[in-house]
Design a protein around this nucleic acid. Structure first.
Lengths: 133, 133
DNA sequence: AGATGAGTTGACTTTAACGTAAAAACACTG
DNA sequence: CAGTGTTTTTACGTTAAAGTCAACTCATCT
């Protein structure tokens, strides 16, 4: 049961460079503790990195990702801030829903392209058999 | 029934700048015809622009998008090329599937954040009623 | 003819997200 | 204790995807 991860452990696990992790730190996306100069990443830091990379795969910018991550930790005491938080959540949800639709459409189009390719494939096979005969 | 779109029509419809559309053209992503110097976009060009923007929303780079768009138009006559095409399709599909999973996870987390916020909200409401009494 | 407005080209600038290289600090290993 | 490997800081470079600005063309309106 390991309490801390070194930077290289994480770069290997997530296939990123140290430069990348330090950059994320400079942007305030993670804040590993230090033993002397050395960075020590907690399991919590590791989770945040996972969130960051997931956000990137979905095409969010680091700034957007930062906002989302901050939503996770925040528990605003004031009702106005709570409303703002709920609004942000709703906004993100509809963005994600749009991405879902985009994916569905793209998958459908891939189906069509593939179907076309299969047809061509069988045409080729037929021609080959004909030539063999 | 309009055969052509001007560049500004499309910038308004898709909320992009002319610079953007010209840039996409320079990258070979669209190739509007010309009347003199002026660009004329066909409905087909318009569709391609839609595809580009959809790709961007999903976090694909313009190069990746170009590859995908070229897949659509391609009908390779040779079986090796066909295999390559099918492989690319499969690769894209799994990428998209990963994005779908990423979205699901993110949505679940948003649910949690929202639930937390609702709890806080009702706490605040309770306190307010208590103070009124 | 002059002004107005849409469109074009070309060049330079910007921003995000890192890459790369240099120099120095530590930790161990023979 | 010299050498080796890992990590750190600092600083400059790079790439993708446009933004911005200037000068120009062309058609149209007055």
């Amino acid at each position: 049961m390991q309490r801390y991860f070194t930077i290289t452990q994480l770069t290997q696990e997530f296939d990123v460079t140290t430069r990348t992790l330090r950059f994320y730190e400079a942007q305030g996306l993670v804040t590993p503790t230090r033993r002397g100069r050395q960075r020590l990443y907690t399991p919590g830091d590791r989770t945040r990195i996972k969130l960051i990379l997931r956000g990137k795969r979905l095409g969010f910018s680091l700034n957007e990702i930062k906002e989302m991550i901050e939503m996770y930790g925040s528990s605003p005491g004031e009702s106005g801030q709570l409303r703002l938080l709920l609004d942000k959540i709703a906004a993100r949800r509809s963005e994600l829903a749009e991405k879902q639709r985009d994916i569905e459409l793209t998958l459908l189009e891939l189906d069509e392209v593939e179907a076309g390719a299969m047809v061509r494939m069988s045409e080729l096979a037929g021609r080959t058999r004909a030539e063999e005969a």
